[in-house]
Design a protein around this nucleic acid. Sequence first.
DNA 1: ACAAATGATGCGGGAGCCCGCACTTCTACC
DNA 2: GGTAGAAGTGCGGGCTCCCGCATCATTTGT
Lengths: 253, 253
Amino acid sequence: MRILIVEDDYFHASFLQNVIAEALPEVTETLHAQDGLQGEAAARAGRFEAVVMDLQMARRNGIEAARTIWDERPRTRILFWSNYSDEAYLRGVAEIVPAKSAYGYVLKTASRERLKLVLRAVLLEGQVMVDREIQRLRRRSASHRHVLNDSEYAVLLDLALGLQDRLIAERRGLSLRTVQNRLLTLYAKLGVSDEEPSMPGLNKRVRALSRAISTRILNVEMLETAQRDLESWLGERPVNEKAPPTQEGDGAR
Amino acid sequence: MRILIVEDDYFHASFLQNVIAEALPEVTETLHAQDGLQGEAAARAGRFEAVVMDLQMARRNGIEAARTIWDERPRTRILFWSNYSDEAYLRGVAEIVPAKSAYGYVLKTASRERLKLVLRAVLLEGQVMVDREIQRLRRRSASHRHVLNDSEYAVLLDLALGLQDRLIAERRGLSLRTVQNRLLTLYAKLGVSDEEPSMPGLNKRVRALSRAISTRILNVEMLETAQRDLESWLGERPVNEKAPPTQEGDGAR
DNA sequence: ACAAATGATGCGGGAGCCCGCACTTCTACC
DNA sequence: GGTAGAAGTGCGGGCTCCCGCATCATTTGT
């Protein structure tokens, strides 16, 4: 069995190699890539069955690297290994994992024993496994602020990219008013409201993004990924011009 | 000489201790705190002259920890040691460093030799020193998107927190129109505009925040710090009610 | 099968936002 | 001293946004 390690921190990478050697004696070879791009290239060339992937790397983050790896070989088993349990990462991973494959998610703070366990479970036995520490954190925040469903999350992403209502409606195939309803519930779930005595007049739209980021429902990596997705959507869109209800050559604006 | 290390990653902390022992033989004792809060407490109790501080830690980030340490003992020398060179961190540090003190900023990817050099220069000799790698990155992005001056940055923070124009004006002691002018230049400098052929109707306000985050001009840590500052400002504000429609003596300006 | 709940949509209006135009300080450079 | 440029402010208009009120369609419970 051959394993690819994608990890930009030298210490973490060598620790991982060490643990792998101990937990998985059936491994015959491990390769170490330093960032997402290298990881993609290595996976393409090396045909690994198993990958341990850091998230949050320069040049190409772990989610995007995993996506292209899975696009090319959907059976690859990938264990995500990260310092953070941002909801954004979990949603990002859940969105791209193919049916054929197995994956896992562990925190870097997990004990050596737990890491070994997850390594075996995911990479060797093909189980799906999420560190119970993450489930715990997840549950705790869920009790507080309500959980976003997929359609709300999609709208949140669009909002975060700066799209205005009309465009969101077009992209998601909804009416304008419906989008605004989604935003409404989004505001509620993110705790954006004027009722706060301390919080006076605020711009709900921006505030929503702000809170989504503070609470790690969104993070930079997923924002960048979403931006790329948006661009490709814009690309294949049939130069759809809006027949503006009003008239005529308003020229560049 | 006694040194406090504030760092939540075990491997990095022990590597650092190792390098310190080698670079600074005059150190008689090092203490290791695992996050910002612990770091503040340790600094308060231990009266260290020198600190090596990670940014991006749970519970209390490095900037905030440094701020309270410097509030209590302004001569403490602090070396910031981070994986990232986000502009947000640099501005955050620059904002809080007291005149009496010395500080430095190194990337974790710096070579062992450079780390040793910076350790001696900052902690021992009291120089101010920023890793040249950071200057380089800084310069590169500066050429591209224009650099924000302090007042624009302040407005950006307010925008990011979700304040609306009126409140920003009040907080910064400006007229409404002036705030809007600032926002205008902010949009320009962040590259938010409709001229993009690809980018159709977008919400400039949100887009500005989005881009500020993507380009690391802002990051989560500084957003949270700014939020706390805002809350304390709101706290000491004299329950200022808006005499809404009309105007009159709005006092401060 | 009927009622209640949930979700999508339309309409309309008050408020906030973006920004062109014009006027006034304030600052800087000959 | 004078003039040009930058920054601050006011006014007004067009557009987006937030959201209450009301109407259907779909889903769910009993």
